[in-house]
Design a protein around this nucleic acid. Sequence first.
DNA 1: GAAGTGTTTCGGTTGTGCCGGAAACTATTT
DNA 2: AAATAGTTTCCGGCACAACCGAAACACTTC
Lengths: 249, 249
Amino acid sequence: MTNTPNRSVQRAFRIVDELSENGGGRASELASRLEMPVSTVHDYLQALVETGYVTAEDKEYRTSTRFLEVGHRQRHRLEVVKAVRNELVTVADETGEHVTLLIEEHDQAVILAVQEGPDAINLFAYPGARMPLHATAPGKAMLAHRDDGRVAELVDQGLVEVTSRTVTDPDVLLEQLETVRQRGYAVDEGERIAGMVCIAAPVLDKREQIQGAICVCGPESRLGETRREEIADVVQRAANVTQVNLDYV
Amino acid sequence: MTNTPNRSVQRAFRIVDELSENGGGRASELASRLEMPVSTVHDYLQALVETGYVTAEDKEYRTSTRFLEVGHRQRHRLEVVKAVRNELVTVADETGEHVTLLIEEHDQAVILAVQEGPDAINLFAYPGARMPLHATAPGKAMLAHRDDGRVAELVDQGLVEVTSRTVTDPDVLLEQLETVRQRGYAVDEGERIAGMVCIAAPVLDKREQIQGAICVCGPESRLGETRREEIADVVQRAANVTQVNLDYV
DNA sequence: GAAGTGTTTCGGTTGTGCCGGAAACTATTT
DNA sequence: AAATAGTTTCCGGCACAACCGAAACACTTC
């Protein structure tokens, strides 16, 4: 942006990113991938090990469990997580499907908690996983309760097509958001993962501020019209209880 | 050690640590706590935000969910976690207590997974939480299967007294480790948390390498002699099944 | 034992992190 | 509104630490 990006910090975290994506790596490997001199990467790795955020085991470097620690501490402090915990379990039991809590961060939807019901299909969903807002039910649920300016910004950045069904037309998106506001829940039909339907309800606090979204995902084949409405009810009720918990505490 | 600690990297992560411990903070606040000039801290925060690992919301900085993401990705790749998952649930159900999976990292025991049984007391235990090896059952379970050199190193670093019951005498520790090897499980009696008894079994792979430990914790009052032995059996069986899973995959 | 591959060390130079100072905001108070 | 105090943010020049080429070192492999 303006200035002072602090190159060292950038580079350190680029290395961390790289380690995270590949589940570890060696100095030379990283060096070639990041197009940096080996000796430089080596210096960084040394420094990172020193901090405790990276471990070195026989020339093989990995991210350490410190990341888990920091991540969980942060999550633990978020009110929504506490407020929603029991509800997630309930929803998972009642629907049998894959249930998640998401929040918005840095213009993306991020999973904070996962609860798998008895029939849940195995999604590649873990806390910290992120996805575009416009291509998911929870994302749309949250966007619907943001001011229009925010939505316009997103549109300007371009609505990436994740699957062939992803909404990429701004007008369609705005229309859908209006629908979400009216009926209280959002749906995505294979817009992020083909063959997958998700239904999500927004969690608001007493000041009508969006705090997150509860989302149920299941295979299209299992989620007919009536079933979807059932699920929508369950999710909305859960979101409601969560709001009460949130305001009560 | 030798040289090149890369000050920028150190400082960046010190700021992250500080943010994590206090659940966020403002520039001036951090500056005074870390005894750095405000402008410097500001520069770092800016850089950290740029990386996406820190979020800024109205002058209030927090660690972002990226840490969760990196942490979980790492955890996901660890074989032990997959191998132990079902067993943790089983143990939690059978014992009713608080069950965890731990590994060793950087001379500490680190929790990787938590499973609470129906009667579990509420411990401040979350993935990423760390504790000294010598003061916990899982730590002792893991140490028992390390070569003596490693143990000697730990002793040299000093056996910190966590509670009044913590083993601080090297000879006693070595003796206990021998017992662990003989009967296959480790016990700690209020050595880390007063009033808390923990029973842990080591998870080894086919090459006899220590991969982690499964740990059951409960209040002293509930864990009499016979109950402890029951639990020891359950934990050992779980560790055994985990080993099989580990080697099979 | 020579040649190949990757890691670690070393040190000079050069670019950039650093931080004092000032400006631009935000509250709060009179 | 004006003054005060406490922030955050911007700026810019200097010193020093990051940077990386090259050399030393540790290994395999042929």
